[in-house]
Write a protein that binds this DNA or RNA. Structure first.
Length: 458
RNA sequence: GGCAGGGUGGCCAAGUGGUAAGGCAGAGGUCUGCAAAACCUCCAUCGCGGGUUCGAUUCCCGCCCCUGCCUCCA
């Protein structure tokens, strides 16, 4: 079976065939850089990192674009609150974003455009919309998109315009002809950042930037457009309207939306205040644990985030690293080679089913451990395991790094281990156990293996 | 209210018209001086009620419950 992707627009799995054979263009909506990213953002990063890695593994040359929204009301407000410039704020947050993404083992996209770098593209798109009568200048002076002019509006999110309007509590002012219309170009108030445009100084609306940047980097029609489920409406709906109307094109060919991160079954969000920033989580767990947690749930399902779930993911990774250590002890290279197991390929090809793929990974873990127990050297199985790990971006650290082995206390611990060894040789088990207990209290766990005693942090 | 997606063992989570992967936790066993790690074994009939079928957790209908979107939101 070749790759199938669940397309949000048609609501079914479709065989993936890129526009240009061998090449894939993918655009993922990034973040608005006014604050640190939270676990929900982490999910988008990891989900599309998996998509990116898998497409590359399948041999595609992938152009992966993920934007930064660096003009926006929240940014303006936050910068003012902190008494710093907008540029200082966005630079700082983009740096933090990269730190988080790197920690999570996410490969950098091939392009990471900022909205402010694409003013001209946005203005041109708005001009095209104006010229074709899809946009108009509202009473407030803002340039607005006329939703009613786009017949397919609502298709992505499955919304009926008339029902939307009926239930709408959207403010009726802002000079809109229709409550559903949205801003393409917003006139600047004094003191606000502004760019010159044919309609006066102002800044772009949120939606136009993604339409403009995706087309600028990937062309008017490209393969995959992704983002969080909450972006479906109205953001992606609006993106489609703008791009399709401006370019007479199809715009994105496959739409992918990842599910939310929940806490106590509720969506993690800023407004509910039930969110954790990525860096908060990384104070308590290695970043890879968070990545593992994300892989344990299918990307379209809600993901339950909890301390317990994190501990579970940590324990699962411990098993993988124990095996990595064990392999090293018997002189087996930790390197990817050969083909991926068929079951793994099937799982990944089935709309990136990472939970199922992980099942294959752990079946291999057991297989390899069993062989090792029997004194065999399952080189092929290990190489397959490593290959799978690389696709998933896990088990990429050194064993020492994972188990918290560092130079500072290593010498001390080694002295204790040596001392215990002497005691054991003298059959003074009471003394040996006392030493082990002493270290355990300091969070150091000893394990006696056939090739000597090793230690790790609890 | 409209629309969408869900309810699988103690927790998390895949999946299939023919009696349910994997991870965590738990029980027993092997190994070990003892542990730890590893391995072996055990632990669910898939929200409820109908229907279709030789057979449904998987298809259809009804019901209950949960979540999300409809406003900025990954």
């Amino acid at each position: 079976m070749s790759l199938q992707i669940f397309d949000s627009l048609t609501r079914c799995k479709r065989d993936f065939e890129p526009l240009v054979p061998g090449r894939v263009g993918m655009y993922v909506c990034g973040v608005t850089v006014y604050d640190y990213s939270h676990v929900g953002h982490a999910r988008v990063m990891v989900v599309f990192d998996i998509v990116y890695r898998w497409l590359r593994r399948l041999g595609y040359e992938v152009r992966y674009v993920r934007n930064f929204t660096d003009v926006d009301d929240k940014i303006i407000r936050r910068a003012a609150e902190r008494g710093i410039s907008i540029e200082q704020l966005t630079d700082e947050m983009i740096g933090a974003f990269h730190e988080d993404a790197d920690a999570l083992g996410c490969l950098r996209p091939t392009h990471e455009p900022r909205a402010t770098e694409h003013m001209q593209d946005m203005i041109e798109m708005i001009q095209a919309l104006m010229a074709q009568g899809y946009a108009y200048r509202g009473a407030s002076g803002d340039i607005l998109f006329s939703v009613r002019k786009f017949e397919h509006y609502g298709r992505l999110s499955g919304k009926n315009i008339d029902e939307l309007e009926a239930g709408s509590r959207v403010a009726v002012d802002e000079g809109k002809r229709d409550p559903l219309d949205f801003v393409l170009w917003k006139m600047a108030k004094p003191g606000e950042p502004a760019w010159d445009s044919p309609w006066g100084r102002g800044r772009p609306g949120w939606h136009i930037e993604c339409s403009a940047m995706s087309c600028a980097h990937l062309g008017e029609t490209f393969d995959i457009h992704g983002g969080g489920m909450d972006l479906k409406f109205p953001h992606h709906e609006n993106e489609i309207a703008q791009a399709v109307c401006a370019n007479h094109g199809r715009f994105a060919r496959y739409w992918m939306h990842n599910g939310f991160v929940n806490i106590n079954t509720e969506k993690m969000s800023k407004s509910l205040g039930n969110f954790f920033t990525i860096r908060e989580v990384l104070d308590k767990f290695p970043a890879e644990v968070l990545r593992m947690l994300m892989l344990e749930t299918h990307y379209r399902s809600p993901l339950e985030f909890s301390d317990q779930a994190m501990h579970g993911a940590k324990a699962a990774l411990d098993r993988l690293y124990e095996l990595k250590r064990r392999a090293a002890q018997v002189g087996l290279e930790w390197e990817a080679a050969g083909d991926l197991p068929e079951a793994f390929v099937q799982a990944m090809n089935d709309d990136f089913n990472t939970p199922e793929a992980l099942g294959v990974v752990f079946e291999h873990v057991r297989l390899i451990n069993r062989a090792l127990d029997q004194g065999r050297y399952p080189k092929d199985a290990l190489q397959a395991l490593v290959a799978m790990s690389e696709v998933l971006g896990i088990a990429r650290q050194t064993v020492d790094a994972w188990f918290g082995v560092d130079d500072v206390d290593a010498a001390f611990i080694q002295r204790m281990i040596d001392e215990r060894l002497q005691a054991r040789k003298a059959r003074d088990y009471e003394r040996a156990d006392a030493i082990r207990e002493q270290l355990r209290k300091r969070g150091i766990l000893l394990e006696d293996t056939p090739s000597g005693t090793v230690w790790k942090k609890a």
